[in-house]
Each structure stands twice: as C-alpha cells, then as structure tokens.
Design a protein around this nucleic acid. Sequence first.
DNA 1: ACATCCTGGATATTAATCATCCAGGTTACG
DNA 2: CGTAACCTGGATGATTAATATCCAGGATGT
Lengths: 156, 156
Amino acid sequence: MNEGVEWALHSCLNLAWIGEERAVTAARLAGYHELPPAYLNKQLQSLVRAGILSSVPGCQGGFRLARSLDRITLMDVVTAIEGPDEAFRCTEIRGQGPGATTGRPTAECAIADAMGRADLAWRRELAAQTLADVRARAERQAPGAPDRIRRWFADL
Amino acid sequence: MNEGVEWALHSCLNLAWIGEERAVTAARLAGYHELPPAYLNKQLQSLVRAGILSSVPGCQGGFRLARSLDRITLMDVVTAIEGPDEAFRCTEIRGQGPGATTGRPTAECAIADAMGRADLAWRRELAAQTLADVRARAERQAPGAPDRIRRWFADL
DNA sequence: ACATCCTGGATATTAATCATCCAGGTTACG
DNA sequence: CGTAACCTGGATGATTAATATCCAGGATGT
C-alpha cells in the first residue's frame, strides 16, 4: 500500500487540530513530519480532487479540510490516494491455454469472487471508521498532542 | 498484491481436480494456463514451505496437495505467497520532525490501529473461506471444468 | 509589480515485482 | 550403474511501479 495514505491521514488530522481559521501550506505540513514537500503536495492534490480537502491558490494560500472529520472515512482517504482498484487483480488465467473455454462468456471466476469478498470486508471496515473516531482515539492516547501541534503551526 | 496468489489458488484447485494419484510437474501446471514455468515453480515452492503442498523430487516427481481443500483457507495461501506483513505499513512519522515526543515510548499510533482493524477484517474473511468452498462454487458455475482439467492432465 | 503558493505535466531515481538461469541433490527406469 | 527428469535454492537480469524532484503556468495577497 502506498505510503501516501499514511501521510494523508496524518495531514488531515493535523489540519483538524490546527483549526479552520487559515489554510496551511504543503511545505509546512511536510515540515512537521520531515516529509518530502513536493511529493506530499501531490498527495494533498489527490485529496483535493477527491473533495476531502480544499485548496487556496496564491499567496497566503494552502490547504484546509473541505468538511469535518466525522464526514471523512478511512475509505475516502484510501480511495483518494490508492485509486478504486482492489488489491487482488484477477487476470483471468482460466481463459489462457488449453483450459480456455472457447466462445461464450464465462461466469465470474470463483477465486476472484472469494478474494472480492475479503476485499469487501476490508472496505466495509474502512468505511465504518471516520477520521473523527481516529482523532478521538489519538487524543485519548496522547492528550498533549493537539496543543503541541497547534503551537508548532501557530508560530510563523 | 502479488500475481502469484492467483496462480497458486488456481494450481491448488487444479491439483484437487486432478486427484491424489500422482504428483504433477510445475511445468505441466504452468502449461495449462500458459504461465512462466520457472516462476510458477517458485510460487509452488512457497506453498511447499507453508505446508500446503508437498513435493516429490526426482524423476516422476512433482507437486501434490499436502492436505485436503477443506483444510486450506485463502488466508493460508495468501500468507504463503505474500508473507505475513499487512498492506498498510506504519512508518511512525509521528516520531519524525518537530512533532516528535522525546524520550518515553509512545502508545500505538491511532491511525495504524484503525488501518489494522480493516486489515483484520480482511484476514478474517480470508480465513473463513476454504478452498473447498471456492471449489464448490466453481463447480456450480462451470460444471464441465473438472472433467476437462482431468482429461488434459491425464494424457501424457 | 512582486513574492508566495497551488496545479499539472514531465522527468529522474529507487525499490519491488516478474522472470530466467544454473549448479546441486534426488528419484525412476533401463 | 548411468542417464534423464525434476525439485531446491541462490544468483541474476528485465520490467514495472513507487518514490521524488523540477518547472512553467495561473492565482492571490501585499
């Protein structure tokens, strides 16, 4: 799985902790975790295209959350970064070689179907968790983090 | 996800349909779906190491199922080919940069925890399905397949 | 005007996957 | 015996995806 998913999730939480007042620069978000700024910027752009973040161009511009954390699921973020494809990709090797059934279209591969069920269970669990849930758990585990983050992003 | 998972699953089903009487060569299993023989062989070796297949070396050698399909889950095969790591890998970017909490060990990252839940749901679904289930569904969708496979592997 | 900063495409770099090859050991068969 | 078939494991190369940077263009505050 793309490392950008982790960056995107942390950045969304950071944006929520910083607050809505102003947009935050990609370089600044990257600086907080020492991530490559240009590359994080790409991931943030994906979040914008997915409608999770909104971006402000120009001077004093940057990124902010397009909606509140309780309306963003893990599934939203994963799909935005990773794309819609499922992990298991059926290449239909049934249809290759002497085993191929000539002519008529075959029913769906039972193996792809089975793997698809597992993928569905994964997505369901991702869709069941909002970033608000994650944030709440994070604050319970590290109560000092929100303030620390707010302070760091506050000074110039 | 590794393409070898698909090959391994199809090969296990084929071995079950062929029957227990004799071992089947990697080249022969590969030939049925026009897969690269040497590379499929590698995947079969992984299945042997995982105890899913057993191999007989030497002339007239090959591979056979080490146990019946109802005792092999999708999880077994996926783990054998893909390894034990989960898809989402937490790189603990919390601990990098100015956001790092100095000193004491931090509680588990709430994001990694949340992604881990989804991974668990995925694995549970994989572990809940045996290859016998998959075989049954495949035979319902394509009743002619078992015979066709048996015949192709039967002649020299 | 000018500096800042997002956008999107092009491009380079690095790692993972896909695939082949070979030497070594094992077994059937003549 | 000895030879051909076949698995084993490591080394190696080719291909593709992930990672990362760069730049021209447009937008915006000062």
